[in-house]
Design a protein around this nucleic acid. Structure first.
Lengths: 150, 150
DNA sequence: ATGGATGCAAACTGTTTGCACTACT
DNA sequence: AGTAGTGCAAACAGTTTGCATCCAT
């Protein structure tokens, strides 16, 4: 269970976002947000769907998809595509921007995902904005690795 | 049509790879490789499938998938996931490693993809290998941007 | 000749859509 | 009351799988 003050804070952000966009403030949206914040790592739609059911707050998959899309727009989750064609999400508020090292075993299965943060990305971003004449608002950096044999 | 010397060279690489792995050297594999090298940008399975048909070298989709997987393992193509859940490929030989800026319009549709190359990635990679104790063999860096309004 | 590769269609998986019903405003 | 949001199932898209056939070895 995520800390109450965090729940309060993200709920507030969602609330304001929905007000600003004239959206209805449904039970589902708030509850899903809360449960999303229980996850400390990446999860896919299926996992969240089952988790909600387990917590006796069963909703339809359509609602899970819709709500995650909303949370994404509100900046409360991030969406990633790792090596398969499934979308993975993770909470993003109070969880500063970071990148991933995807460690695979010899069969190519994901063994673990290491998170890291490197300020040089920001420098590259700034230079690219100048050189390419674009406005960059996000990035994803994945390193693909094998665990070092010892 | 890709330059004959390039075709020769990549065919040779594929040939050696298949020998090394005791694989059968079928027409399909060589032909698909050739046609893959006609593409100067990213393409998905569907596009390649249609292109082959158009060139009167129709093969089944299963073969397209299988062969792309082979080319991937042989290091002759790269595979990317952009914003949707479709895999995109691009030739990788004689086409040095690079990263992407995905430029979207206001509706979120991909407007264009800019390629770039920055040596600082290599520095980050080296540091991570030391710090995290992993062996990194590849990476993907995506910047998400909007075209700058003027 | 043998079995790895292909072709085709069917199965599968993740995601989207359509429509009736529900409940927020 | 009106309509955005939800639930459910069916549709969809990309990918994988199973099996008969073919062809590289």
């Amino acid at each position: 269970m995520a800390k109450p003050e965090i729940i309060k804070s993200v709920t507030d952000i969602l609330n304001k976002y929905m007000t600003r966009h004239h959206m209805r403030k449904t039970q589902e949206r708030f509850k899903i947000l809360e449960y999303v914040y229980d996850f400390d790592t990446h999860f896919d739609v299926e996992e969240l769907y089952r988790y909600l059911k387990e917590k006796d707050f069963a909703v339809s998959k359509a609602t899970v998809y819709n709500t995650l899309e909303l949370l994404l727009k509100a900046g409360l989750v991030r969406k990633h595509y790792f090596n398969d064609n499934t979308a993975y999400y993770e909470k993003s508020y109070f969880n500063k921007s970071h990148d991933h090292i995807i460690v695979r075993d010899d069969e190519g299965n994901v063994e673990k995902i290491i998170e890291f943060c490197d300020p040089r990305i920001e420098l590259i971003k700034n230079d690219l904005e100048k050189i390419m004449g674009v406005e960059i608002d996000d990035h994803d950096l994945y390193f693909y690795a094998k665990a070092k044999k010892e």
